[in-house]
Deep mutational scan, measured.
Amino acid sequence: MSIQHFRVALIPFFAAFCLPVFAHPETLVKVKDAEDQLGARVGYIELDLNSGKILESFRPEERFPMMSTFKVLLCGAVLSRVDAGQEQLGRRIHYSQNDLVKYSPVTEKHLTDGMTVRELCSAAITMSDNTAANLLLTTIGGPKELTAFLHNMGDHVTRLDRWEPELNEAIPNDERDTTMPAAMATTLRKLLTGELLTLASRQQLIDWMEADKVAGPLLRSALPAGWFIADKSGASERGSRGIIAALGPDGKPSRIVVIYTTGSQATMDERNRQIAEIGASLIKHW
């Protein structure tokens, strides 16, 4: 058993032996400061991975655009179909130039040979490839079927209504393609630790998130040596930015963190910096 498999397999085991986890309101002070700095709403939640207890939250039940963070949920739905014998990670999917949409750094290189379902999930999560996400959405029946999958998990909040890139429109008060921090954190925890997916599929999902290559300026920039993080970021119109993550010290995840912001006029660099500073406060007061 690899170190990674050891880590995921023991998450339920550690729940019975973990020390009490204490919240630190200092992080919420930073979240509120980020709102002031960005001139935008910020949603935040910090969840204990083992118990599911909410440690801190700010606007946990307000809607925010999901942006590309939905791609983790999408690959969770794909893995659920794999577990049920309805899909194979090794199945190759062929597509054409007409299928390519904006920001497809991986799929645009494989027009001649296509990509496997496994490769598409990797591209969608680690590189946020939009065509990969659309191709995967097609395999499960489209955005409405992803919403149905989430409903069956008990998440009646999170919804996907459109495809890439239209889902990134982020119109104020538009509930399409949105979630709430509390709903996203709970759903992510179920995917990573619950019985919905097999152990192998849970491991695969967290491996893809751990290999994320496009979230460096966010929480990863504040991470001390030896800490673990598996994450997925997102960005969209109207100053929207977000990240969902499982992270913790000693090389294993122990908390879920979800951060969303929307409605800012700030630059992408400034949005990144504010999220990184929230992460730094979280780690300092861990």
Rank of each mutant, 00 (worst) to 15 (best):
G90R: 09
L218V: 02
T187Q: 02
R238A: 14
L136V: 05
W163P: 05
G239C: 04
F149S: 04
W227L: 00
P224S: 02
R202I: 03
L205I: 07
I206Q: 12
A222Y: 08
S68T: 00
A215T: 07
L218Y: 02
A222E: 12
A222L: 05
R162S: 12
A77R: 09
E56K: 05
S221E: 09
F70L: 02
G251E: 07
N130D: 03
N173L: 12
I244A: 03
R202T: 13
S201Y: 03
E237S: 12
V214D: 05
V8G: 10
R220Y: 01
M66R: 00
L223Y: 01
H94L: 14
A211K: 12
T186Y: 15
D99S: 14
M67L: 12
E175H: 11
G251S: 09
Q97S: 14
K213N: 08
G43S: 02
E56V: 05
E237L: 11
F70S: 07
L247R: 00
P165A: 05
S281A: 15
P65R: 03
G85Q: 12
P181S: 01
R41L: 08
P253A: 10
Q88V: 13
H94Q: 13
D207H: 13
D174K: 03
A183D: 05
F58V: 06
K213S: 10
H5P: 09
D174N: 04
M184Y: 04
S221N: 09
T178N: 02
L199V: 15
A222S: 13
R159G: 01
S201C: 07
L219K: 02
I244G: 00
F228L: 03
V117A: 02
G251C: 07
G242E: 00
A182T: 11
W163S: 06
R91S: 05
S80L: 12
E61L: 13
P224L: 01
E164K: 10
T138S: 15
A276D: 03
R81T: 04
E61T: 13
P172A: 12
A170C: 12
S96V: 13
Y103S: 07
I125T: 03
V8L: 15
H94D: 09
D250Y: 12
E164D: 01
H156S: 12
L79V: 04
D99A: 11
A9R: 08
L135G: 00
M268Y: 08
K213R: 12
K284G: 07
L10F: 11
L19Q: 15
R63P: 04
L188F: 12
M180S: 15
K232R: 02
I275L: 09
L196G: 13
A124T: 10
V29M: 13
R202C: 08
A200L: 08
T178M: 02
Q204R: 09
S240E: 09
G43D: 00
H24Y: 05
D212H: 03
T267P: 14
D161G: 03
A225G: 12
P253V: 05
H110Y: 10
V72G: 00
L137Q: 02
I278P: 00
F13C: 12
G239L: 02
G85E: 10
I283V: 14
G39R: 12
E164Q: 01
S264I: 05
L74A: 05
D231S: 04
D99T: 10
A34V: 09
T186R: 14
Q86A: 13
L55S: 02
A215I: 01
E237D: 12
I206S: 12
I140V: 13
Q86N: 15
K284R: 12
D174P: 02
E175W: 09
H151L: 10
T261A: 10
G226S: 07
R202W: 01
M153N: 08
Q88T: 13
A266R: 12
L10Y: 10
S96G: 13
P12H: 13
A225S: 14
L197Q: 02
G216E: 08
E61F: 15
E166L: 08
G234C: 04
L137P: 00
D269Q: 10
D161A: 04
I3M: 09
A246G: 02
A84G: 13
K252I: 12
A215Q: 03
T107A: 10
L247T: 02
R271P: 06
P249S: 03
I256A: 02
N98E: 14
L73M: 08
G43W: 00
Q88H: 14
T27R: 07
G154A: 03
R92G: 04
L197F: 03
H24T: 07
G279V: 05
S80K: 14
E175I: 14
S128R: 00
L197A: 01
A211S: 13
M268E: 07
P224G: 02
T139R: 09
T262G: 13
D269N: 11
I244P: 00
P224K: 03
